[in-house]
């Protein structure tokens, strides 16, 4: 009995393919080494100080998005929330509100947007893809209606510095302590906390999660609210980084965020994903773009590479899995013949 058991299990363990998040980290290391050989500027502080701010918002939103996709849902409205919370922040500041309060209310708007998504998906029972395509238009519409085609730009210098300057003479942008804090926070939340365990459980099987006494609907609402809140934070930071609050801030960012999450090894079918994989994917994106810039490769090649990696992120694990299964079948066949 035991004998058969170990025979069946072992080949699977031996040939377990790399998971995609490991592959992406290997790719990142290769890129960093290769890039530094190719161009001495690549691994310098200056280059990083240029590269990092560009992926700041993506990192911020990709963190909760990872949890959301792991739980089997998706949010396409994040970029619109970024826009709306930025507009709220800008307009309230322009009306003379204390800037701290304005920023806070900008984040609160994000929380509310997330709550709307969450309630529509979990309580009303609509599909998250359709709901968030609708709220993508709705939230952006609110931003447009509130702001019109004007913009707010006269933020105090100390605040806009926060958006794009580095800390002293280091390469780290001032926003990064906050961003790194959030990455660690979400890393802990996802991989070490009860909340994270339950998120994976829901993504793997909603039915089994119900039988395990997990309150699935409330959990999903919380995830949407988290995503909205982080989009709100990103909205304020985005405004500060470009010193402008206007209605079309971060237009189209949702696809970059989702691409980052998927590239980081999060399964679109839910139940699988890691925060470090996603963070690595974001840095990979940023580094690749920076390297292409340095080498004067057209940014279009970068866009093409993004798309190819994205398709690769679903295709390669699939092919590896098929090869793996084929090998197991062959081993079993051999065992059968041996008998």
């Amino acid at each position: 009995m035991k004998n058969i058991f170990t025979k069946i299990i072992q080949p699977q363990r031996r040939f377990r393919p790399f998971t995609w998040d490991v592959i992406i980290m290997i790719l990142l290391v290769i890129l960093l080494v290769f890039g530094s050989i190719l161009n001495p500027v690549f691994l310098t502080a200056f280059n990083f100080s240029l590269m990092l701010p560009n992926i700041g918002e993506i990192l911020l939103i990709a963190m909760p998005m990872t949890l959301l996709i792991i739980a089997g849902e998706i949010d396409l409205s994040v970029a619109s929330i970024v826009g709306l919370s930025g507009v709220t922040f800008g307009l309230l500041y322009e009306r003379g509100l204390n800037i701290w309060l304005a920023a806070f209310l900008g984040v609160i708007v994000g929380v509310l947007c997330g709550a709307v998504n969450g309630i529509l998906v979990a309580r009303v029972g609509l599909g998250s893809l359709a709901v968030t395509i609708a709220t993508l238009a709705l939230f952006r519409g609110f931003a447009t209606a509130a702001m019109g085609n004007k913009s707010v730009t006269d933020f105090p210098e100390s605040w806009t510095n926060f958006g794009y300057s580095t800390i002293g003479k280091t390469f780290l942008p001032q926003t990064y302590p906050l961003i790194i804090f959030f990455i660690i926070l979400f890393g802990i939340l996802t991989h070490l906390s009860i909340f994270g365990r339950r998120t994976f459980a829901i993504g793997q099987s909603v039915e089994a999660a119900r039988f395990a006494a997990i309150s699935v609907l409330n959990h999903k609402i919380i995830l949407f609210i988290l995503t909205g809140a982080m989009s709100g934070v990103a909205g304020v930071i985005y405004v500060l980084r470009i010193s402008t609050a206007q209605y079309d801030n971060a237009m189209g960012l949702e696809l970059s965020v989702i691409a980052t999450a998927l590239l980081g090894g999060v399964s679109i079918f839910g139940g699988v994903g890691t925060i470090w994989g996603v963070a690595a994917a974001a840095v990979l994106f940023g580094s690749l773009e920076a390297l292409f810039n340095l080498q004067a490769v057209s940014p279009n090649i970068f866009t093409i590479t993004t798309g190819t990696l994205l398709i690769g992120s679903v295709m390669i694990p699939l092919l590896l899995g098929r090869i793996n299964r084929f090998r197991i079948d062959r081993i079993r066949e051999n065992e059968k013949n041996a008998k």
Binding site: L255, F269, S298
Partner: peptide
């Protein structure tokens, strides 16, 4: 049998990049 959402999102980038280039 790859998920169409991911594949066509990737295709979106690739086509856009080729177009720009």
């Amino acid at each position: 049998r790859l998920p169409s959402l991911v594949v066509t999102l990737g295709a979106l980038y690739i086509i856009r990049g080729i177009d720009y280039q």
